[in-house]
Design a protein around this nucleic acid. Structure first.
Lengths: 126, 126
DNA sequence: CATGAACGATTACGCGTGTAATCTTTCGTA
DNA sequence: TACGAAAGATTACACGCGTAATCGTTCATG
């Protein structure tokens, strides 16, 4: 089970705005990018084309524009990326990562609360 | 607080064997790599040199060989990498990652047990 | 109908990475 | 002392990525 569709960091920014809402044309994607992403419009088009080539998005033409929508699902991507990291760093297991964060005091109290809730819910058969 | 020392995937394999035991010379590193890593000896030397240049390892000469040891600490690397991923995917928080894994039934029973223990220990002031 | 603006398509280019091969130096040994 | 093996140093090379600029085409408008 290798990477079905691997997307780069810059490409991921584009996907994020398409996951948020789609279909969108290149200009709309450009406009919807967060401020911290400071690209030229041409850059967005390059990335959309690369994503097309990879099969991560699809496009349909309307008038003379293309409208883009994700093919790769956000959930699938999240799982791919985080599984890959856990594999590389922690032998594929989740608990050691959490332990590591705990040791380095990187768990917020919100995290701890949420984790408790989650485990409690799982205890009830979730 | 950007990446102090960023190392690539291949380089990480080399670091792993140095973290496991050091100092080691290039040939010992080569021999200690896991079977799944199938490189020529020359590749290992390239990677060691790149790591040197990055300051991730240091070397001291003994006879005509160099012996290599990590400068970058494993803990630091684990934290860098996992923090970066959490930042990209889950807004920097741990709990959503665990929740995501839970939703997709990727938590082993071992994970669940360990997480429970961990949270219990933290409850006792850990 | 001609022209410019707008859109997509093609091309660019330097850097890091994976993956070595080859060149150079040096040490041990015949 | 000369030569070959072994170790490091230098060079290689294709590919993906970040980041565009430019080229080509088409639609709308004067």
């Amino acid at each position: 089970m290798a990477d079905p569709v691997a997307i780069s960091e810059a490409e991921a920014h584009v996907m994020q705005v398409l996951w948020q809402h789609s279909p969108r044309d290149a200009d709309e994607v450009f406009g919807a990018l967060p401020d911290c992403v400071d690209w030229q419009a041409a850059t967005v088009k390059t990335l959309l084309n690369r994503l097309l080539k990879k099969g991560a998005v699809r496009a349909h033409k309307l008038g003379r524009r293309y409208f883009y929508a994700p093919v790769l699902k956000r959930d699938q991507w999240l799982l791919q990326e985080s599984s890959a990291l856990l594999q590389r760093l922690f032998n594929g297991r989740v608990a050691p990562l959490v332990a590591h964060f705990s040791q380095h005091r990187r768990l917020s109290s919100g995290d701890i609360r949420d984790l408790r809730k989650l485990l409690a819910a799982m205890g009830r058969g979730g």
